[in-house]
Structure formats: C-alpha cells, structure tokens
Design a protein around this nucleic acid. Sequence first.
DNA 1: TTGAAAGCGCTAACAC
DNA 2: GTGTTAGCGCTTTCAA
Lengths: 376, 376
Amino acid sequence: MPVTIRDVARASGVHISTVSRTFSAPHLVNPETRVRVLACAEDLGYRPNRAARALITGRTHNIGLIIADIANPFFPPLIKAAESQARHRDYHVFVADTNEDAAAEEELVHALAKQVDGVLLCSPRMSNSLIEQLSREVPLVVVNRQLAGLPCVLMDVGQGARSAIEHLAGLGHREIALLGGPRGSWTSREIRRAAGAAARTAGAELTVLGPNPPTEHGGLAQAEQVRRAGVSAVLAYNDLMAIGLLEGLDALGVAVPQEVSVVGVDDISLSRLTRPKLTTVATPTAAAGRTAVDMLLQHDTDLPRTGRAGGAGTTVGVRRTTAQVMLQTELVIRDSTGPGPYAGRERPGATAEGPGPHRRADPGGPRVAAGDVVAS
Amino acid sequence: MPVTIRDVARASGVHISTVSRTFSAPHLVNPETRVRVLACAEDLGYRPNRAARALITGRTHNIGLIIADIANPFFPPLIKAAESQARHRDYHVFVADTNEDAAAEEELVHALAKQVDGVLLCSPRMSNSLIEQLSREVPLVVVNRQLAGLPCVLMDVGQGARSAIEHLAGLGHREIALLGGPRGSWTSREIRRAAGAAARTAGAELTVLGPNPPTEHGGLAQAEQVRRAGVSAVLAYNDLMAIGLLEGLDALGVAVPQEVSVVGVDDISLSRLTRPKLTTVATPTAAAGRTAVDMLLQHDTDLPRTGRAGGAGTTVGVRRTTAQVMLQTELVIRDSTGPGPYAGRERPGATAEGPGPHRRADPGGPRVAAGDVVAS
DNA sequence: TTGAAAGCGCTAACAC
DNA sequence: GTGTTAGCGCTTTCAA
C-alpha cells in the first residue's frame, strides 16, 4: 500500500536510481526528468522512507532527547525549543523520560543509539565516567552538566546563586539556608559551591539542607527544618522547591517575606503566579534547548556513518568539537524577598547591592544574552 | 564500528539467521545454541537494529505523539504517561509540537507515517474530515476529539462543565460568563454546549466570551470584558485562562471570589498554587495518555505491515477497532468560588447543590474512575 | 545524464 | 534445529 521509490520510477518511466537522485542529489539529474519525477512523486504522495535511507547512509535524521522528568515544568520549554529547532533542520525527535533514574538513562541511550544521529542528555543523573563511555556509542550533547571533552550546554547558575546571595545579604540577611537539589545534579553542586563562596564573602552563614527531590514536595518537606534552623532567608535549588517551601511556611504561619525571604532558581512560568510572587534566578531554558540541538547538528555532515562511504573498517573522521556554552542567568526580583534582621546596618565587605545582573520584576520579553563560548 | 548480526554470528559460529531467531523467535532455537549466541551478543554489546528490522517486518516499534503545545502545562503529564506506557511495551516515542497549527499537524502525520506504527493526535485543530483521511495513511488515536469511526479518548468535560455551572448556580450565581477556548477545539465546543444547557436548567444566563487562545494571556485579556459583562461568575475553558483571568481581575481590583467567582478546567498542578486556589474541573490527563497508547497498541499484532506476509498487493486485514473511551472528570472545589448575589434565595429548578461528582479540595491520590467504553 | 548491480542489517520462507 | 536464499526501500559506485 505505501508508495515506494519503485512506484514513482514506474510512473515516470525512469530507473529507481534516477528517482533516488531526484531527491538526494537533484543537480545530478536532467531538469526535465526531474520535473517529471517530482510530478509523479507528488501525484502518488511519495515520501522517501527515512529508515531505509538510514540503513545505507548511516544517518537517521532523528535525535533523542533524554529528560529527567517531563512533568517538571522546567523541561517543557526546553523540549519545545529543541524539538522546534530540530524540525527546522528536518530532524525528528524521540523523547524519553527517565524519572530521575540513572539506570534508565543508560538503558535509553543504548536503546536509542541505533535510531538516532545523536542524543541530548538533559540534567543527567549518571556519573561522568558513564556519560563519557556512552558518548563513544553515539554523539552526545549534555545539558546542565560540565564534562571535559564533551559538548555541554550550561546555564550559569553559579553566577545566579551568587547574585541571589548578594541580593539577600544586601537586604540584611546573615543566616541563610540552601535547599539542596538531588544527588548527582551538577546544577545543585554548582549552586552550593557558588552560594557558599558568596555567603563567605558577604559575611553571611549558609546552612545546607538536603539533598532533596527537586519537587514541590521536596520544598514543602523542609519547611519545618527551615523554621528550626532559625534562618531569615532561603535559596532553593529550583522554583518548584521554593514554591513548595512557600506553601509549607504558609501552613506553619511563617510570613514571607516578612519573616523569611525565599529565592528560587529557573523562573518557571508559575513563579509569577504564587503569592507572594517568587524572586528567582531566571534560567534560559529555551535557548539551552535550541543551542544543544545546534551543537549536536553542527556538522551534520560529519556525524558518524555506518555506510560504505567511510571505507571498510575505517573509523570515519568524526570531527567532534567539544565546545562548551555557558548561558547567562539573571536574578529576577519579585515579592518573596524583603528586608532581613540586619537591614540598614553596616555589613562586612561588599557594597549596598552586589554586582551581577539583577532586575526588578517582569515582563516576558527575551532575557537571554548570547552564550559565551567558554572553551572549544 | 556498530556491531551487527553478522559479528554475533561469526563470534558464536552460527549462521546469521540463527542469531536472528535467537532474538525474534527464541523458541525455535536449540537452548544451548541460544545461550551461546546470547552470550556473544551480550559480550559484543549487540542490539538488533530496529530500523533494519522494520524494513522487513513493517513494524517500527515507534509511535508518534502530536501535541498542540508542549509548553501548555496540560500536556506534559499526558506526554509523560504516554511515553512511559509506550516504553513498557517496548515502543519509542516521537514527540512533535504543532504550535496549535492545523497545517503543521497534517504535515507531521505525513512526515512521521513511515517511521511509526501509529500516531496519537492530542487535541487536534484539524478538521474531522482531514483526520479521517490521514487515518488511512497511518493508524490514529485521537485524544480530546470525538470522531465517528476512529478510536478516541475523551474526557467528559461536558459533565464537568455541568457540575461547574450547577456549583455556581447553587452558590447563587445567575449571570455567568464562559471564556471560550480556541477555534477548532472539540473540548471548547463541548464545554459550551453543556454549560449552556446546564445554565438554562438552572435558570442562569450564560454569556460566551471568545474564542480565545488557551493561554494565561487569553484569560488576562478578557478580564476587562468580564467586568463589563457584569457577571458574578466565570467558567474558563482551561486553568491557564482561569489563572490569567485571576491576575487580570486582581489588577482591576476585582476581588475573587467576593465579587466574581472563577472556575477552570484541567486541574493542572499550578491550580493549587494560585491565591485564591482555583476551583476547577479535574481532567484525567495521565490516564488519557496511557489509555490512548493502549488503544493504539491494542492489537499490536495486526497493525499494518508492509512486509511480504500480506501477500503481494493484498491489503492486510487491519482489524481496527474504533472504541471510544470517555474518562470521568470531577469538580474540585477550592477557594476561587463563593456565594453569589442570589445566595440563600430560592432558585428556579434544581436542588441546593446539583448532582455530579464534586469534591472539596485535595490531596493528590488517583481521582480517575475507569473509563466507560461508549462504543466499539 | 541514466541504468545496472551491489548491499545497508535484518527477517522469513524454504530446504536440509 | 540450522543454513540458504531472497528481498524490505533505498543509495551509491561503476559503466555505458
């Protein structure tokens, strides 16, 4: 039933190889013939079978997107942007959800490897060494994880965390808690590192609570601890946890920002909808998706091929660049942060308001500066 | 570089067809041979190439998921559930976003047709006749659209809208507005139909505002109209619009629920986070995703094959069932609805609180009754 | 510029 | 129970 290259050949009175050329190397075919073939193809509704084509060219024109948790509102904008970018380049996208599970990630890379030209690993939970190993099986681009020798798309959450801490310190907070993210998260470590350093500089004390699941519930569950810790401000690993914390504090009768200030990370769309509206570090998710796809498909000419073109037994020259792109983040100040117990008093070191890209509230325009290529 | 069936055959000293059988019909191969082959395969890290297999079997073990807007929080839980269900059955999932565009939907079905065993069309914007036509190209299951002759997964938003109107009428609201959804949406028509009927029965007047884009902005943009319309309650096409409306009303200084009550549809996770918390019609999104995949893969034995098995020129007996499943919805009453101007007064027809599945607030357990098979 | 032929990795008759 | 063979739909030398 489905129409094949042979049907088109028959209808247009040429050999199948001519039809093939019409689609994959049109300049090699007589214009008149081309027109005729194209007309017949159109007529019959012919579309080349990509799987069959892949078998011989070694290029599937598919990519894989491996996501820790599709339902986490951080990811859909990334998926959407990546898919859109891929489709513009005539690629189709497999999406798979790992439920934050490292083993599932590994299995998925194996399973997808033969069907795709490359895989985007988003916020992986696997070990670095495993990722490196898998990258020998299929081209990988890693999002939200820094790995020497592999192409990575990073968001500068370190800078973001620093801005957040400086913002809090500037408001007069000296005892600050950090709600850590999940184990195995590069982002979480990065935030912790930068927040710790910034706190030291600002003369504030940072208490780390966690690791926690990166969910609303993860934040909610720490509300009690936060109160006990006696801090006046909290930086959460992500907005979801911050929002959960907001709920938890509300339930405990702790007023935000009067008694405790809360800052999140990501600026997911909900963050403008909570009461109080959440102060957060905006993260360029869509840009990350687009960039990652671009990096994966950069030289879509020299992705690996299994076809004969490479010569028997020869490993084809896969010129893999390992550029790492760092995307800017930005602190968006809303209503969940306010003056702390030391407001107005002099503060050791630092100026009234720390450096770094801050912004008072909204609207929705593009907030992402172009990424810096950090290495290549 | 990638290891093929031939490598395994060589390593285990058997013919490639034996290796093939080991994977696709293990019972036809001598247990000892099987063990040996399996061991070699494991050793070499062999995985059958699905694309090559598909070429001859006609079964790709892939499905397509076509989504109006991945960033709309209604969809991620559906995608997640569908992907998970598919993977349990050893299928991989292509996800594509149409940006609410009918033409993109059509193009995607064509483009994906050859690479998948079936496609899930989620909240399509295409015409019924086009969908029917496309269903001859590739097996389709339609979510959120009723179409005679095609397998559909529906959510009973009609019942939901009815419950919502009855709830509002019971609270003493007589002038109610309906914020319509996007053109081409079955759900929107269905809500409108049922809400209209319920309003008539309850002796209330329903003003329809729209169509609107199914986004926060769509709701926000109607806040002024809502105030002008002089209604005391609003039912919105979905939670996103309801939330936008909440913001808009807040900006206009209109108190919810004191001056205007607001009800949404979907119960997306944000709905518990707004202030006031949103009263809404909960929609079993995850169940819909799972169910749709199950329906698509129901007889995964008699999905169409292009292989020789069907005999030359014979259309293979695709036994397509056209079961339609209707999933229950449930009104979840939170804080965005309150007494209306006619509260306490007698009301024409109806009892104090209309029938239908209501519920006062949360928690998160399963709320979905098993679907009713409406037809087959 | 076009056709003939080989073959990508795999499965499915059919022999043995 | 296993090997032989043909061929899925397509691309790509190689000759003509």
